[in-house]
Design a protein around this nucleic acid. Structure first.
Lengths: 213, 213, 213, 213
DNA sequence: AATGAATGAGCATTCATTCAT
DNA sequence: TATGAATGAATGCTCATTCAT
């Protein structure tokens, strides 16, 4: 790299557009690195230096983008959850049948996490490492996600698709809990298999029950 | 052992029985304290000194009964899980109908954890704080527990009670995941409500599905 | 063991003569164990429990015979040094020629330590692990030992056997230092060889010098 | 390096040279502090915090320059011994007469340690506090030092200066042991006297023996 | 005298965070 | 913005010593 290229670079950094780009990119890079590192070693066993090293930046630089190690974990969750919910809402908006909506949500759930194993590990394992986090977690995006399922189910009850002797909240928890268990088992499994197809197996039971009619 | 032999023993300075009793009691006290402390602050945020303080003993005494802080967490799990599985097996042994067996297991699951909130927190939250632990966890008692459900379901399929177009493994995961979610929500809930009755609500869905027939 | 045998034993312990014997024996056993353990692991890395275990007694029993771990080390030195000096004095008392006296001391020095490797290790290595100890050490028996050599040399000067242009103190240090170095090398050597014969090799130089006459 | 180059350097934020200088200086400062602290309290009784405090840095900073407390002790020895040997070799290279060479070595030995009492204490006392260290010590620089003496003596035998009925190895140990004893006594002595002159007194005996001819 | 369970002070090391450059 | 050297609080574990039995 010549002196000239360096000069050009430093000019770029100063221009409005690319500054934001750089900022976003570096934040992004740190988050990606953190997900990888957290997935490998666990939150408490991961050092900020590991994350910085993985992202190819200095330790101190992390603190230009995040206030603390804890905030990184929160950001991972916030960002993924927001994206998760947005995409979920977008997809089911175009679907009429409540049962199909739930099917879409279930598939999306497993597709998302089945594609990004590291993120899945952080979600299933690391995010649950502290009661404190779980309580905030619960209060925030997670509740919203569960509520989408609940509402969709209630719609189905109103339109006569679903049984009305079941509480929508319970129903949402059962579906979410089932999917969650699929993810956890997939992560911990020594065998490698695609996660997404499990959605249909879960729904077969969820929709029809296990009893012979 | 006769009454006479007991009398003789109590005259002895250190009878096998009473020594063991003290040892068991103190081990027990440490485990109970650890469950409480872990539940309150999380495993990584709990100091060994906290556990010792809660148990009313000196820090060093903890190490007369446990090799490390980590071993305490393992012991909590091992003991509870063993008891859990033993009781589960005992109860379903007396039941014929596979559906009733599953109902018994489900109720037992929620009764147990619903009675001991601290233990529930450690089980739901702390035991999942590390991938490493989860993998050992998975390989050990947890797999056995899931297998009991799977076998019971398979029995039901053989006896014509349950649908045969569903994989027993998936079925076990769905039931377990649903119950697990009930526990997690119960723990994190600000409201106080009995956990055990949720078993029936879960089973209503599990057995009959959510669709209108 | 029957009750009777126990009774007999407790009577033995109460008899004057054997009590002292037991006390001495146990003190002795602890010292021997300590020498072995210190030689193997070093003073700071040895636990009192190791010594007790080696001696086949309970940890607390050590404190019935010694005030502290430190005192054990001191006792090892004191006892060995006293014995050392006493034997040295006794042996040279019967010898007339000062040169022969020094030869006897030198041989005795290496014979003693060459026979008890563990004691040698403690003497050469462990006793020097602290300045504090070395200073007390120096002030006590060690100075006396060095003084015996010095006096013997001075006798030799008076009787015209040794050069008078050499300070007895320096002479004593040279002889002691030379012997000491033989012991240290012998301990650290991977090869196994008898230590005592080195005395004559040292004396050949000490008496005659290294220069060609 | 000229004054101008220095000026240029100080203008640079972080020139390679000055960074290294700082690093070396701090390492140096830690080693000096450690020598002082070890000399005062002994290795095992010295806390890393003591060393850091003496050096005027934070505890953690020590670990930026040394891997462990143990490594500090090793570094002290390695550095001093390397310097010791290098200087010894350099000095005797210019001398022809083997006897003069030994005289030079002996004087150097006592001059070095007589100038730096703390270093002398660490060398004489602390480095011998563990068999483990002594064995590595023996295998490394110490053996090399002894070997220089041995070779020099063998040269003297070849050139007819020294007696040939003496083993060079024994001879080296006697000389080294004698000097070593001078240092140890000097350290432990309550009186204050110059160490270096003792070299000649040792050599008077070493070269000529103690016997009247 | 003997025991060994209990004590609790003590310490090397780690690592999130800061800040001068 | 970026760096990375420096910080120093924090903690699991050890082990010499005590003491009730």
């Amino acid at each position: 790299m010549t002196i000239h290229s360096v000069e050009r670079m430093s000019k770029n950094k100063s221009s409005g557009q690319s500054v934001r780009a750089v900022v976003v990119d570096k934040r992004e890079a740190i988050l990606r690195s953190a997900i990888k590192v957290f997935a490998e070693k666990g939150y408490f066993n991961s050092k900020v230096a590991d994350i910085a090293g993985e992202a190819g930046i200095a330790d101190g630089t992390v603190y230009l983008y995040f206030k603390s190690k804890d905030e990184i974990l929160h950001s991972i969750f916030d960002r993924a959850m927001a994206e998760f919910i947005a995409e979920g809402r977008r997809e089911i908006a175009e679907i009429q049948n409540p049962a199909d909506k739930l099917r879409r949500i279930a598939r999306l759930h497993l597709e998302k996490l089945g594609t990004d194993r590291d993120l899945a590990i952080v979600f299933q394992i690391e995010l649950r490492g502290s009661t404190k986090f779980m309580q905030e977690f619960s209060a925030a995006g997670f509740a919203e996600y569960l509520d989408i399922i609940r509402q969709t189910f209630a719609e189905g009850q109103a339109s006569g698709v679903f049984r009305t002797d079941i509480k929508p909240v319970v129903c949402a928890k059962v579906l979410y809990g089932s999917l969650d268990e699929m993810v956890t088992n997939w992560i911990l499994s020594k065998k490698s298999y695609p996660l997404a197809p499990m959605a249909d197996e879960v729904l077969k039971i969820f929709f029809g029950g296990v009893m012979v009619k």
